[in-house]
Design a protein around this nucleic acid. Structure first.
Lengths: 338, 338
DNA sequence: GAGAGGCGCTGAACCGGATAAGTAACGTGA
DNA sequence: TCACGTTACTTATCCGGTTCAGCGCCTCTC
């Protein structure tokens, strides 16, 4: 019942362990006939390389680590992470790399997980998500010397390889579209204010609103949950200068906002236009279907994984700017009421 | 820049590798003072055990494998898997186990991934999800001898350890509730017909409908997507004997069904009652909020992980029946139209 | 026909730990 | 005082691979 080793193969083939190793790894040093014999025996007795023994000789672990620092309930809620993981996974599995995942409570725990994985030789690299300003993880990773790709803007990624998309452009496209429809009072229900991409969106939003001469640009920050999205929407729609359009930082809040509007007897899109950041089946399934900022999230993850693998394999890797989100108009946006 | 090893510690402490190993592992054989000195040096130079070297000595990999056999797009759609993973993760990380994940295309690939992981000593065990009838994976896993917990009914889990919940009871509770409200024509929009739990729900549904003397019990099978859920609903609502209540096998289809009903100018719950299997923020956020069959999915995953860890650590582990889903009535269910 | 060179293989060291076996030094009781 | 048992180590071996030096042997070349 024990696992067969190369020593077993060597004994059966009547050669040395070294010869077996060469044969199995496609290295020169054995004749074609011996190689074939060894491969046949290996196949027959069901030999598999022991990854631990390989790793001991300085080989790679063929594994990429991902420590996710969000409370568990957000993961279930947001399609974003699962799609991201699917994309990363697709790229990794094509190259026979595995993905090691751990959900952690905070950045400190996240770093200790990475330190452990790296120190124990369990992973060859990692992906950092949810970049903050002056994110301590960046310098710690630089110290650690572990190959890392950061999903976030290059201005904050230090010497780590960034993969990002131009959220500012998407914000501008959205606001321009809404003003073209005639909207003047546009509000934004944003995500966590500590995240770099939230701030970049905030800034782009203020800037484009100012450029277009819009009276004010209200931004409310939330934690991405439907509850906070609903609360923010209720507050916005109850204010004296009610916005005629609201842009949400994720789809779950947009859907929650839609419900609140309907609950307040406002017609969407007649009285209120709604735009969701990140498309998902969810935004298409509600009535009216939501105008959304569409991104190919699996591709985003795949691009990050590609860079990471190049980095691991010793390449010099440049940052990569992914496609910006594109506006997909659906039934939730229309000209404002007269 | 090289990783420190116990040999480095031994040199600095002026003792042998063996003594260092005993000291670091809390084994007897070194004096308290030497142990303290060794631990201090290890701490100082930032030593971490190399997991590969440990594994080589027959130690465990401290890793659990999960190969998920669903197209990537479903993963993003269904909160179920992400919540399950969170739950598994919570249990594993508490015991310093890692989770290795790979998304695969089919069962054959799934098994080859498990065989590789097990053969290479990368994982100590695995969790099988989406059990089919006469699932070939069960017997293959039995042959492989790898510790495995099956999320599925014990009737189909062979000698593997099952963790399951009584879906039949949940179906009965739902149908009884709907008939108590006065419904007589109840339909079910179910998931993949190959899955064991789908069939068990189908059977329970037919049985309880027959018991209660309901005229007919229509079940439509889908692939869990919103599109198919919408299509099935459209067909049901267009039929001559339109149901007054529909029970969906997941929340995404229930939401899609709700949209279809509204699109067909049916009032929910006035003209049509809707029940969703598996609760999520999504079902609470739509209007009306959906009556749902609530389960603690993270706990479900945690229970499976607990059993798996006991199994890995050599315990004799019994199957575990988790709590059945409980009905949480909300605004989408009411008496049928008169 | 001798030296050069390449092929095909062997033997052994090595990776970083765990661990069994061996060995001094010391304490203890008879 | 001597046999005996502990304590606190050291030494050596093992895990399952990779890899390097070396060694016959055959072939080619001049």
């Amino acid at each position: 019942m024990k696992r067969p080793t190369i020593a077993d193969i060597a004994r059966q083939a009547g050669v040395s362990k070294g010869a077996v190793s060469y044969a199995l790894n496609g290295q020169p040093g054995v004749s074609a006939s011996t190689r074939a014999r060894i491969l046949a025996i290996a196949e027959e007795i069901g030999w598999r390389p022991n990854s631990a023994a390989r790793a001991l000789n300085g080989a790679r672990a063929d594994t990429v680590g991902l420590a996710l620092c969000r409370p568990a309930r957000f993961l279930g809620v947001e399609p974003f992470f699962m799609e991201l993981i699917s994309g990363i996974e697709g790229e990794l599995s094509a190259r026979s790399y595995a993905l090691m995942i751990q959900v952690v409570a905070d950045h400190e725990e996240e770093m200790s997980v990475y330190r452990r994985w790296w120190g124990e030789g369990r992973v060859d690299g990692g992906i950092l998500v949810d970049l903050h300003f002056s994110d301590p993880r960046v310098s710690e990773m630089e110290t650690l010397g572990m190959p890392v790709v950061v999903l976030g803007h290059p201005s904050e990624s230090g010497s780590l390889v960034p993969v990002w998309s131009d959220d500012g452009a998407a914000v501008r496209e959205t606001v321009q579209y809404l003003t073209a429809l005639g909207h003047r009072r546009i509000a934004r229900v944003a995500g966590l204010p500590k995240l770099v991409h939230t701030v970049l969106r905030d800034q782009a939003f203020s800037a484009v609103c100012a450029d277009l001469g819009l009276p004010e640009s209200v931004t409310v920050h939330t934690d991405y949950t439907g509850e906070e999205g609903a609360r923010a929407t209720r507050r916005l729609l109850s204010s004296a200068s009610r916005p005629t359009a609201v842009v949400y930082d994720n789809d779950i809040m947009a859907v929650a906002g839609l419900s609140v509007a309907q609950e307040m007897r406002l017609d969407v899109p007649g009285d209120l236009s709604i735009v969701a950041w990140d498309d998902s089946p969810l935004s298409q399934v509600v009535r009216p279907p939501l105008t959304a900022l569409t991104r190919d999230i699996p591709a985003y993850g795949a691009h990050a994984a590609q860079r990471l693998l190049s980095l691991i394999e010793g390449g010099l890797v440049a940052g990569f700017e992914d496609q910006a989100a594109r506006l997909t108009p659906r039934g939730s946006t229309a000209p404002p009421p007269a």
